[in-house]
Amino acid sequence: MSETVIEVHGLTKHYPGAKAVDGIDFDVHAGEVFSLLGPNGAGKTTTVEILEGLRSPTGGTARVFGVDVSKDYGKIRRRVGVLPQEFEPFDRLTPTEAVTYWANLFDRRISKADAKKLLGQVSLSERADVQGLKLSGGEKRKLGIAMALVGEPELLFLDEPTTGLDPKARRDVWGLIRRIEGEGRTVILTTHYLEEAEVLADNVAIMHKGKIVAEGPPAELVARSGARTTIVLGGAGKEGLEEVTRRGIPAVLDHDDVLVRVSDPREMKTILAKLSALEAPLKDMYTRRATLEDVFLRLVGAKMDEGVLQA
């Protein structure tokens, strides 16, 4: 087992009338991408801000590199890079100037060429000399990641790194996070995008109302939850549902589609054979693997809207 970078035990953060974080425990090991997943208000950002030394916990312990962050965060500051959720670049500094400036604040001196090289790594070379206020949302996020990386941190906190980005910019950032992981750095990724956690994270902690309701590798969480593969009979309608149930196959109607959940993969072949003889008109027929969304639905009954978890 690799070194434990973060140890959280019984961590709480209470405000008058609200428990933002309510007794959570988790460990993060060196070199992994650990995702805190949950809808807005689940307590993800409060948790990472405690780990970043920006908030004091009400109770419990949070240790990063073995240091109690509520007491001695200063000792590990150089080893940590942070992209806050609400990152905004300095309006009147260019990315090159911002990165050079930020390096100094981590006791590093980098040349203009080094700054541009780093900006190249986040695909921001062409905008390296444009003032911050002229950058797009995606470019701002990339600059934020470059600034978080400039101190060469061993641990990187990325709080909602792709929120508000278009699909292309989001995929660019994903590629960047994979590359960072490839360099052996530990990444704490908070997100409310299920797909993001599924694609990027080695381990996921699903948060809901300040608590961790499930934790583990995404595939294991799916398997553990009992969520099943689903056969979708597109456009089969009520007529299709009646025909399927007449053949002894349990199914439900979802809008105009009929959903058949397969609890045992060994039954898949038999069910498919029965369904292929259906006479009801079909627009489409396909199978859908269980995802973290199914896990989330089963655990907390939360819904998703355009890929974003809803509280």
């Binding site: 920006l54 500051r77 940590v80 806050p84 300095f90 930020w102 604040l105 981590f106 006791d107």
Partner: peptide, 13 residues
């Protein structure tokens, strides 16, 4: 407002 203080708090300044 723009959370620069919070950002600075993560540095060694």
């Amino acid at each position: 407002t723009r959370k620069y203080f919070k950002l600075l708090a993560t540095t060694t300044l």
